[in-house]
Simulated scan of single mutants.
Amino acid sequence: MKSRAETAPSRAPKARTIAELDSLIADCRACPRLVAWREEVAVTKRASFRDQIYWGKAVPGFGPDDASILIVGLAPAAHGANRTGRMFTGDRSGDFLFAAMHAVGLASQSHASSIDDGLRLIDTRITSPVHCAPPANKPTPGERRTCAPYLNRELELLAPTVKVAIVLGGFGWQALMSSLIDGGWDVPRPRPKFGHGARVVVEHPDGRTLSILGCFHVSQQNTFTGRLTSPMLEAILDEAKAAARV
Rank of each mutant, 00 (worst) to 15 (best):
A103R: 08
A148P: 00
E40Y: 08
G61M: 04
A112K: 01
A148N: 08
R11T: 07
H131F: 05
S113I: 07
E156G: 07
R46P: 08
C147R: 12
H204Y: 06
D27H: 08
K193M: 11
P149M: 04
N152I: 04
F88M: 07
N137R: 11
K241C: 04
F171H: 03
L151Y: 02
D117S: 13
D182Y: 03
L157Y: 06
H79L: 02
A242E: 06
S230M: 09
A136S: 12
A26Y: 01
Y54D: 02
P64R: 10
S3A: 07
K45L: 14
G80S: 07
G169Q: 07
V167S: 01
R33N: 08
D66P: 04
T124S: 15
S10D: 15
G184R: 15
V200W: 02
S179V: 01
P60D: 08
P64N: 08
E203H: 13
F88R: 02
T44H: 07
V218M: 04
D66Y: 08
T124P: 15
A165E: 09
L233W: 06
E20Y: 03
H196N: 07
P13Y: 00
P205W: 06
D22Y: 06
H102T: 04
T140K: 12
F96T: 03
A159G: 05
T209N: 03
Y54A: 03
T7D: 11
G184K: 13
I69Y: 02
I236P: 01
G142E: 15
A77W: 07
A15P: 04
Q220Y: 05
G170F: 09
L237A: 09
G183S: 15
R145Y: 09
D95P: 01
E234S: 12
T127M: 06
A165G: 08
N82H: 12
G170W: 06
D116S: 10
E143N: 11
L213K: 01
A240M: 15
A36S: 11
S219P: 04
S48Q: 15
P205L: 09
T89N: 01
S93V: 01
P64S: 08
A81L: 00
Y150S: 04
H204E: 04
R208D: 04
R120Y: 14
V218R: 02
I181Q: 15
E239K: 11
G90H: 03
Q221C: 09
T17E: 02
A112G: 07
L155D: 00
A58N: 04
E39N: 13
P231I: 04
A175E: 06
L176A: 10
A242N: 07
P76V: 02
F62A: 00
T223G: 05
G197C: 11
R38G: 08
A136E: 13
K14R: 10
L210N: 03
A81Y: 00
L74D: 14
D123R: 14
S110C: 11
K193A: 14
W55T: 03
D206P: 00
L210Y: 06
K57V: 00
E40K: 13
P129C: 12
H196D: 08
R145T: 05
A12I: 05
E143G: 12
G142Y: 11
